[in-house]
């Protein structure tokens, strides 16, 4: 009974967590790219990282929170333009290659010691340097803890109810924007491009512009996810590397690509899976078989294998429609 309660409690914490919201946001952005438009962006973590850097650096330098958010989103938009212009006229593989490379480079350059005054190098930028203004915006008490059922978090500071609320509000807002866009004629053109861009081109649509809009939009939503992510942690280049992008693909494909709520559902399920796996291993597997530092590795091995199996056997995910399969033959 005790163990089941632990599972319930940890599962709930995974759903409340602002990290889950950040992943949901980034996966919504990736959904715009990959799910709806068919753009294989393997550098979504790069968009997140740019958003995080833009936000944290501007706020740290005294730019104010609004300017910080704008800077983060603008950085992602510019990044999308730079990556999109050379690749969006070519086969999809090139975008994939360029995005994975560019995201890695942002991570490496961000961690470079020569930029340490700005980015903090490998160590990154600590949360306290940019989160004050966000905490100040909180309508709740600035200090103290609030308990809801078995979950206790600070009201406003650090990993707070306030942050979770904002994170999930943004995720729902992003989902709403995606919903509105993809029931519109714009969304229709995008879906057409995903399936056969020559057909859409022959109907007089500027395919390149559509793809670029999609790349920028998804990247900006990803950057927003990055900002939410670092408000609950610190800005660390290595925390937003390829692993994050791969997890986002798993989240997206699990929930269902090209569905409005798929990324959110996928994010829930993924994080619940992670904590439950930890709980189960901690409870039942002796540490001689698997030590605790191997648990995350084991989790990721399962995630990688799960991603392969999903793509092969249920590419539409949980919520998707097989007939509208967003990618395939």
């Amino acid at each position: 009974m005790n163990f089941l309660y632990t599972l319930f409690q940890d599962g709930g914490a995974a759903i409340i967590s602002s990290t889950t919201a950040a992943f949901a946001l980034a996966a919504i952005g990736l959904n715009v790219h990959f799910g709806y438009t068919g753009l294989v962006n393997i550098g979504q973590a790069g968009f997140m990282l740019l958003g995080a850097y833009g936000f944290a650096i501007v706020v740290e330098q005294g730019g104010g929170i609004l300017l910080g958010v704008l800077a983060g989103l603008a950085a992602a938009a510019v990044f999308a333009l730079i990556l999109g212009i050379p690749t969006l006229r070519l086969r999809g593989d090139y975008l994939a290659i360029v995005t994975i490379a560019a995201a890695e480079i942002i991570r490496i350059v961000g961690g470079d010691q020569s930029l340490a005054p700005l980015t903090g190098g490998v160590a990154g930028i600590p949360n306290a340097k940019y989160s004050d203004q966000f905490i100040a915006l909180s309508p709740f008490p600035k200090a103290g803890l609030f308990t809801f059922g078995p979950w206790t978090y600070p009201y406003s500071a650090g990993n707070s109810w306030w942050l979770s609320l904002v994170g999930w509000a943004l995720a729902l807002l992003a989902a709403l924007v995606v919903f509105l866009l993809f029931r519109s004629p714009w969304g229709r053109a995008i879906k057409g491009i995903r399936e056969d861009e020559d057909a859409v081109r022959s109907l007089g649509k500027n395919v390149f512009a559509y793809k670029m809009q999609s790349l920028v939009l998804g990247g900006v939503i990803g950057a927003l996810g990055g900002i939410v992510f670092v408000l609950g942690a610190s800005v660390q280049p290595d925390a937003l590397g390829r692993t994050t992008t791969f997890l986002l693909y798993t989240v997206l494909l699990l929930g269902g690509a090209a569905t409005v709520l798929g990324p959110i559902l996928g994010s829930f399920l993924y994080f619940i899976f992670v904590v439950w796996l930890q709980d189960v291993v901690a409870q039942f597997v002796p540490s001689t078989v698997m030590n605790s530092s191997q648990i995350p590795q084991f989790t990721y091995i399962l995630v990688g294998a799960g991603l392969m199996l999903l793509v092969i056997f249920r590419p539409q995910g949980i919520l998707g429609n097989k007939k509208e399969l967003s990618f395939g033959a």
Binding site: K191, G192, L217, K323, L325
Partner: peptide, 29 residues
């Protein structure tokens, strides 16, 4: 033929139209 198979026949047709302001990203909202 480049019929867009994962879209309905009607959506295929609607995509062929011109001067649809909703095909602009912001107006689409």
């Amino acid at each position: 033929t480049k019929a867009l198979s994962a879209m309905t026949v009607m959506d295929n047709m609607l995509l062929g139209a011109k001067d649809q302001p909703g095909e602009h990203m912001l107006a689409a909202l």
